[in-house]
Structures are given as structure tokens and as C-alpha cells.
């Protein structure tokens, strides 16, 4: 009896740290195969790369916890990056009124963030007002935002945004790359929100049992709109980081990013049916994907095989998660 309980506890402990264990094994194996992996340059490089995915995935986690999904984050990322870049470089010109509005870096970034929030809010509004399934509503937004990006950029990159703006994505602060700081702060705030605030508690309750949440007097619509707005704003943060790192807003930036972020959420153990999961899990998921990508590149694995491997990792993660949920 006692050994059975001990064994169960043991298994539970393992399942709690399984992503972490998987990450360590992954790092260990890659470091054996490539001596470039465990160098400071490479590690900072990996962290810089994954910080964009972490920003998006944190928002995605909140959405998925409510049993929703957001397919539009990649397009919102592109649009908001382009808005920020465009405003920074060209400002707004209204020839008919002989008006020109110039933007500071700060102003352009804030406008980009507001744009992302607005698009996210629109997602939430469509989902709650018309009861459109999140999959469909955000799929529509995926196309809409991509189209708006093409309109805004006229299909060409907006580049040469100045050294100061570029430092956001490429610079260092206190020995750590700035994007890592930004994503770290976002993760910290998201952990506080999910663990320590009403909003976080309601997110879990809605995903776990929406009708019980309704009866408990929780304003489901408000919470859902808030969650999609946050996801949109965080996609905009990602867009600004990408634009800054490349010193250019590419009209096709962020294509497929929604899939990477869903993968991070799933690998991190958040249930796609909502109610179960954590921000920290997602961060681990994003790190696993990042390290895997980096390792496969270092080992000269063809990009085509990289995708195959990544797909299997997602599948395995979900299978393990299902097995754990049963216990």
C-alpha cells in the first residue's frame, strides 16, 4: 500500500517536471554532438530567438486556458511591426490638409501596441458577441490582418529604422539581450496574473467549466475579450521585436508563428480543451522548441527534417500529457 502511494507520488513528481527533464536531456544530447552548442554566444543567440515566440505564446496560453485559440497572432505581429516601422519612418501625411505628423520611437511603439490590442479586442468581441467559434473568428483575423499589412506596406519591406530602434531587438542591457529582458518581464507579469489575480482565476474557471463559471457570477464575455486583447497586444510586442531585430518590417513576417506558439503551449502541458496548464509550462515549451531548432541547425540537419522532428515532438508531448491527465 505504502509503496504504491510512494510510487504514485514519484510518478506525479516526474510528470510535473517532465518538460524540464526533457529539456535537460535534449541539451545534454546536443552538447555531446556539437561543441558549439554550449557556448555563451550560442546560448544568448537561442534566447534572443525564442523571446519573440515566448511573447506570443504567453498570450496564446491565456487564450487556450479559456478553451479558445488564436490563429491571428502571426498576422497581427506583422501588421503591428509594420505600423510601428511605417510611423517611425514616414509618419502620417495628410496632403489634403497639409498635415504631417511625425512619431518618436516611443509614440510609434505605443501606436503599434494599441493596434495589436484593438485587433485582439475585435477577436474577442466577435467571439463573444456573435458566438463565432474562436477558431473561425481568429482565422478570419489572420487573413484580415495580413491583408492590412500588405496594404500598409504596399508589399515592400520598410527598412532603415535607425540604430536606436534597432537596439531594442539587438542591444544588451546589464549583460543580457534586451529582447530577453522584455519577454522575461512579460512572463513575470503573466505568472502574477494567472496565479495571483481575479482575472487569472476566472480564466481557469471559464476554461474548466464555463457554465459553472457563468453561474458563479463571472462575466464571461468581459474576461474573454480581455484575454484576446492581451493576446493581440503581446503579438504586437513580438512584431516590434522582430522588426527591430531585422531593422525592417517584412510584409510576410510572422507567417506560421501561430503554429509555433500553439506548439509551445501544447508542449508546455496546457490542455487545448482549457482549464489546465501554466505560463511557466509554455515558457519551457518555447525553450524546448528553440533549443531543438538550434540543435538541428548546429548538427546540419536539413530544414525539411527539422519540421518532421518538430511535429513528432508535439505529438509525443500531447500523448504524454493525455496519459498524465488520466491518472
Amino acid at each position: 500500500m505504502e509503496t504504491a502511494i510512494n510510487r504514485k507520488k514519484y510518478r506525479q513528481t516526474i510528470s510535473r517536471f517532465q518538460s524540464l527533464i526533457a529539456l535537460f536531456i535534449l541539451c545534454f544530447v546536443i552538447s555531446l554532438l556539437s561543441d558549439k552548442f554550449l557556448t555563451a554566444t550560442n546560448i544568448w543567440n537561442v534566447m534572443r530567438q525564442i523571446s519573440v515566440n515566448i511573447c506570443i505564446s504567453v498570450g496564446m496560453t491565456l487564450v487556450v486556458l479559456t478553451a479558445g485559440i488564436d490563429l491571428s497572432v502571426g498576422s497581427i505581429l506583422a501588421l503591428c511591426g509594420a505600423i510601428t516601422a511605417g510611423l517611425l519612418k514616414n509618419g502620417i501625411e495628410i496632403p489634403s490638409h497639409n498635415l504631417y505628423i511625425g512619431f518618436t520611437i516611443f509614440g510609434a511603439i505605443i501606436t503599434g501596441l494599441l493596434g495589436g490590442s484593438l485587433l485582439g479586442w475585435f477577436n474577442g468581441w466577435a467571439i463573444t458577441k456573435f458566438k463565432v467559434p474562436p477558431f473561425a473568428a481568429t482565422l478570419a483575423m489572420l487573413t484580415i490582418a495580413r491583408g492590412l499589412t500588405m496594404l500598409w506596406t504596399k508589399g515592400f519591406p520598410i527598412s532603415n529604422l535607425g540604430e536606436k530602434f534597432a537596439s531594442l531587438g539587438t542591444g544588451w542591457f546589464l549583460g543580457i539581450p534586451s529582447p530577453v529582458w522584455i519577454s522575461g518581464i512579460i512572463v513575470f507579469i503573466a505568472i502574477i496574473i494567472t496565479n495571483k489575480t481575479k482575472l487569472g482565476r476566472y480564466i481557469y474557471a471559464i476554461g474548466g467549466n464555463e457554465s459553472a463559471a457563468t453561474l458563479s457570477g463571472i462575466n464571461i464575455k468581459k474576461i474573454k475579450i480581455a484575454v484576446y486583447t492581451i493576446a493581440g497586444a503581446l503579438a504586437a510586442v513580438g512584431g516590434i521585436l522582430v522588426t527591430s531585430r531585422l531593422d525592417a518590417a517584412q510584409p510576410n513576417a510572422g507567417t506560421g508563428y501561430e503554429l509555433d506558439s500553439i506548439a509551445a503551449v501544447v508542449i508546455g502541458g496546457t490542455s487545448l480543451s482549457g482549464g489546465r496548464g501554466s505560463v511557466m509550462g509554455t515558457v519551457l515549451g518555447a525553450v524546448i522548441i528553440g533549443v531543438l531548432n538550434n540543435g538541428l541547425v548546429l548538427l546540419n540537419v536539413s530544414p525539411f527534417w527539422q519540421q518532421v522532428v518538430k511535429g513528432f515532438v508535439i505529438l509525443i508531448a500531447v500523448v504524454i500529457d493525455k496519459a498524465n491527465a488520466k491518472e
Partner: peptide
């Protein structure tokens, strides 16, 4: 179906209706 969020623990379920007073 309508009363509990079964994935959450006892404490969280009991507190769900009165979170405003607990912050």
C-alpha cells in the same frame, strides 16, 4: 456540470464567487 470546476481544488472552487473580497 454547473456547480464545480472539477480541475480546480477545493479552495479555489469555494473562493470563486467572492474573489473581490479576497484581494
Amino acid at each position: 456540470k454547473d456547480g464545480l470546476v472539477l480541475d480546480l481544488d477545493i479552495r479555489t472552487n469555494i473562493c470563486l464567487t467572492t474573489l473581490s473580497d479576497l484581494q
